[in-house]
Structure formats: structure tokens, C-alpha cells
Amino acid sequence: MTLGRAGPAFRRSAALLALLAGWETLSRLGWLDPFYMPPPSAVGQVMLDLAAGGELWPHLGATATAALAGLAIGLTIGIALGFAAALLPVLAELLEPVMILLNAIPRVILAPLFVIWLGIGLASKLALATILVAVLIFFSVFNGIKEVDRRLVERVRTLGGGRRVLVREVYVPSVTAWVLGNFKVAVGFAFTGAVVGEFVASSRGLGYLLQFAQSTYNAALTIALIVIIMTFVLVLFALAGRLERRLLRWRRSGAGPRGG
């Protein structure tokens, strides 16, 4: 079987292409109502127009700014609070209930509140993306430190290492691994925060465009925007994956001479 021997990436692309071709064919045959389900060619045309007309870029820029800044601030806050809570029991007792509550609810319900507090500009989107990311990262750091490998701690202690050495050699690398393990989820959360924030109230951004497309019953524009957001997030996932592989290269068992 030629198809079976080809790589999984090839098989996946083939499946996607087949789906698009089927969709297009069904539309051309008139079996799909273009009002609800415009053909891929029409969606592609909308995307081209958006890009060529220059209309897309400020919106994409606004969303990316809110998401990436929210990601950075959320990571910083999450890591700082996670470390502090793990090292200071008093702070853990104060923070944990709040964080557990924030973790239990769908945090996007805070969006209207942020709009009231911070207005319809960038700040409310930033705040939503930040809190989505910060809570996730707080728990990965907090639990990461609590579940750090005891044998490593004991090893460093028997070699004579104190608290400073333990933090540098054991806790920080261990937490880095935990955070990187959740990094892709954090990227997704940051975009969720930015887009939902725009969806609720804004004057620009991909979420704003989506809201506009929905209110005008423009299915082609809606699908085009969904595809654009997906593509953008996938590109970021790929970058995150590279960063992860680079920083966690110690996890890969490399080839080489083996034996006692």
C-alpha cells in the first residue's frame, strides 16, 4: 500500500484535502446551502480580500498584542505567585482558595466585569488573557514545586547544597519543565482571553470582526476568521514546540554507544 507507507503527515493532509474537495463538490452540486455553508473557495476568497485589502492586519495586530502581552504577563504573575506560594506556606493558605475558585469557574465570565472596570480598549482583553494564563501557570508551578523529585533534593543536600543551590539546580529547572509542559495550553488560553474579550465589547480585533460577521449573518466571513485564528495559533504552537524541544532537550534519549 503506497498510502500506508507514506508518512502520517501526508495521510493527514490527504484527509484534509479530501474533506475540502468533498465540501466544495457538495456545494457546487447545490446540496449545501451557501448561506449556512459557503464552499471553501468562497471562504478562501474572503480571506484573500481581507488580507489584500489591508483590512485584516490592524485587527490581527490588536488580537495578537492582547494575547501575547497577556501570555507574558500571565506567565510572569503565575510563576512568581506559584514560587512564592510553594516557598511561603502563609501565602499558600491565602492564595490557594482564591486560585481554586478561579480555576473552577469558566474564567471568561469575568470578561464583562473587566469591560466595566477597564473599558472596551486593549486593557480589558489583556486582563482576561492574563488571568486565564496566570491561574493555569500558578498551579503548574505550585504543584511542580510540591511534587519535585525528592531524590534530587536529597542528592543535592548530601552533596552539601543549601537552599540557594536547591532552588537553582533543582526547583527552577523542574518548574521550567512543568511550565513548558503547559505552555501550549497557555498560548491557547491567551488567545481565548483576547478573542472572547473582543467578542464582548470592542472596536477592533479578530473577535470584533467575528462579532460583526455573526451579526450580519456572514457565514463565509465567520469561517474565514475562524480559519485565520486557527492558523495563527497553530503557528504559535509550532514556535512553542520548538522552544520546548530546545529547553527540554535533556529529556530526549539520544543515540550513541551504550553499555556498562
Binding site: L152, R155, V156, G160, G161, E169, T176, W250
Partner: peptide
Amino acid sequence: FQDDALLPWRTARQNVALGLRIR
């Protein structure tokens, strides 16, 4: 010890040097 663990994120050289660096 039996279950001595090397730091997985440090190379063999860094692991051996660790005790010396602590000193």
C-alpha cells in the same frame, strides 16, 4: 545510594562538577 538520581537537566560533566561548585 541505590536511588541516587543525577539531575536530568544537567550534563554528566555538570552533574560531576556540582559537588565541587557547591564547595
